[in-house]
């Protein structure tokens, strides 16, 4: 579904990502792990057009989306969340979803109406998404007034509102407690049942190892391992990356 080929990004002298190849298959949950600074978020930013790659290609559904601006990448069907929560605090919960909603269908009939007012169809969809993320009762709260766990869920809801086929989730469990992580696990599996494809960047190993079919490991901007979770866990290079070299 998503094919990353020899993707590289250099910031000045820093090689944040070096010749990474990665294939994401339709309807799978792929775990993308690695120590801090290994280039995971950079890959998300490269795929979603926050900045262009220095080298390499990004293909999505047989089309080349390398260097596309963010709104086109989203319209093509790739949504993302942010590692540090980036909500629109001055907007209410449902308003945070409003613009993302319809992001795939610019133009056509009824554009003006959709842009100027809240139509019933949009609102029904927004409410369904909020319900799925357990935020419906907080619909009219300002995003900045939400508790931390709710803010994380709103990030996910906002991305889902654009109805992407592929979700790039950048540490969705960061800062969550055990119950919230359990809830997130359920959401992820439910999304998979709905046909979504997910790339899950996460430090919470237990979550990754239990939901991901495959795991890719980055270290210093390079892919050092890829495979089933159990196999990757036993990989010598992965252990070195996380624990240091055995003496």
């Amino acid at each position: 579904m998503l094919a990353i080929e020899r993707l590289s990004k250099q910031f000045g002298g820093v090689k944040a990502v070096q010749h990474v190849d990665l294939d994401v298959r339709q309807n799978e949950i792929l775990g993308l792990i690695g120590p801090n600074g290994s280039g995971k978020s950079t890959i998300v930013n490269l795929v979603t057009g926050v900045f262009p790659p220095t080298e390499g290609r990004v293909r999505f559904k047989d089309g080349d989306i390398t260097g596309w601006p963010p709104h086109r990448v989203l319209a093509a069907g790739v949504g993302r969340t942010f590692q540090s929560i980036r909500l629109f605090g001055g907007l209410t919960v449902w308003q945070n979803l409003w613009v993302a909603q319809n992001a795939q269908s610019e133009g056509g009939r009824g554009v003006l109406r959709r842009w100027l007012a809240v139509d019933r169809a949009s609102m029904t969809k927004i409410e369904a998404t909020l319900e799925f993320c357990r935020l419906l009762d907080k619909k009219d709260e300002l995003a900045s007034n939400l508790a931390f766990g709710d803010q994380r869920r709103l990030e996910l809801a906002r991305t889902l509102a654009a109805e992407p086929d592929l979700l790039l989730l950048d540490e969705p469990a960061a800062g969550m407690n055990a119950a919230e992580i359990e809830d997130l696990r359920e959401r992820l599996l439910a999304l998979k049942r709905r046909g979504k494809t997910i790339v899950l960047i996460e430090h919470h190993m237990e979550l990754v190892m239990t939901v991901a079919e495959r795991v890719a490991v980055l270290n210093f901007g390079q892919k050092i391992a890829e495979g089933r979770p159990a196999a990757v866990q036993d990989d010598e290079r992965v252990r070195e990356a996380y624990l240091g070299q055995r003496r």
């Binding site: 601006p69 629109f88 409003w98 613009v99 993302a100 992001a103």
Partner: peptide, 24 residues
């Protein structure tokens, strides 16, 4: 109060996040 206005306010709050939800 429209979606346009919403997009305008999103740009004001966080341009990167606004781009990520499809705002040009």
């Amino acid at each position: 109060r429209s979606r346009w206005g919403e997009a305008i306010r999103m740009v004001g709050e966080d341009e990167t996040a606004a781009a990520a939800v499809g705002v040009r």
